[in-house]
């Protein structure tokens, strides 16, 4: 209601307070960037861009002390993309099931259960992954993979337990609800008139989904996947507890690795001097990475919201 508010002191004050509080959000975001840059200036000036591509990480003070973030960037990307590869087909399947196939009475409880998966704290996924899933993978899954697919570089080496595979599987479970609930909303935004048009032409349900619903929802679904990726990149506790925290760059999923978030959680509390700076810079990198991804995802999801169309028949 613009218009008749000017002149009233109380109104102006109120508006000012609200505006200040709202602006704090913007300020915080900026201050994060500034504060992290400040706290990592030592390694920023010592290594410059070389930090990002540096392959060695040795925090022991002395002549061999060296910091490079590449192993952690690598570990983050490998675990996240592996998790995506596992989670995306399943999440889209769930979204399609809930939005297109399930009868009403099954729809709500299923969506509810999947969203509860998102509510379970990260540290509990870590606990469960370590004590329950790890033995299962070591005893049943890993040997099978190395027997049948051991000729591939991805399944080479002796499975030890805390490795890329374990972390990725748990990560996949954790990002599943994010991707599937956003995808479900995206599918719901597809106008019903289009579904009806396809059905009236004699399409089966699946043909309708494939040729009309999915193309319409494509960019929104991409956004959902990127949101999931953003979560996977920043996920800390479960990964820290499961990935092994060894800065290495192997192709094999049976090798331990470390991610950007996990190395911070693992080393920051005991870090000194230059190591502090290096870990903070990794945090800065992670912040920048997730920032870019989130902006990208929001733009994609928003665009779907603006597409023409209606919610369909009541």
């Amino acid at each position: 209601m613009p218009g008749w508010r000017i002149g009233n002191l109380g109104d102006r004050l109120f508006r000012g307070i609200a505006a200040t509080f709202a602006t704090i959000i913007v300020v915080v975001l900026l201050v994060i960037a500034v504060a992290l840059t400040q706290a990592s200036r030592e390694t920023l000036s010592a290594y410059g861009f070389g930090f990002v591509v540096g392959q060695d990480w040795n925090p022991v003070e002395g002549a061999n002390e060296v910091y490079g973030a590449l192993p952690f960037v690598w570990g983050t990307l490998v675990t996240s993309f592996l998790a995506l590869a596992l989670a995306v087909p399943i999440s889209v399947g769930i979204a399609v099931f809930i939005a297109e196939l399930a009868p009403e009475w099954i729809r709500t409880p299923t969506g509810f259960v999947v969203e509860l998966l998102a509510a379970v704290p990260s540290v509990i996924y870590g606990l469960w992954g370590f004590f329950v899933l790890r033995p299962v993978l070591i005893e049943h899954v890993d040997p099978a993979l190395s027997r049948w697919l051991g000729f591939l570089p991805f399944f080479r080496g002796a499975p030890l337990g805390n490795d890329v595979l374990l972390a990725s599987v748990v990560l996949a479970i954790m990002i599943l609800p994010t991707i599937s609930s956003v995808s479900r909303e995206i599918l719901r935004a597809v106008p019903n008139t289009l579904r009806e048009a396809a059905l009236a032409l004699g399409a089966t349900k699946w043909e309708m989904i494939r040729s009309v619903v999915l193309p319409y929802a494509k960019s929104g679904l991409t956004g959902a996947v990127i949101l999931g990726l953003g979560r996977a990149l920043g996920e800390t506790m479960a990964v820290t507890m499961l990935v092994g925290n060894k800065p290495s760059m192997s192709l094999s999923v049976f090798e331990p690795a470390a991610t950007m978030a996990s190395i911070i959680a693992n080393q920051y509390p005991e870090a000194q001097g230059r190591q502090h700076s290096a870990l903070t810079e990794i945090g800065l990198l992670l912040f920048a990475l997730t920032l870019v991804l989130n902006i990208l995802a929001r733009l994609l999801v928003w665009r779907v919201g603006r597409l023409p169309g209606d919610a369909g028949r009541a």
């Binding site: 505006a19 913007v26 992290l36 800390t236 903070t280 992670l286 997730t290 902006i295």
Partner: peptide, 27 residues
């Protein structure tokens, strides 16, 4: 300003929680 704040708040929702720990540590 509203658009900027809305956008920042959405983006902030995606900032990894460990980064907010680092931030508060420094500040």
């Amino acid at each position: 300003l509203g658009t900027v704040i809305r956008f920042c708040s959405d983006v902030m929702a995606g900032v990894p929680s460990i980064v907010s720990g680092l931030f508060v540590y420094a500040l």
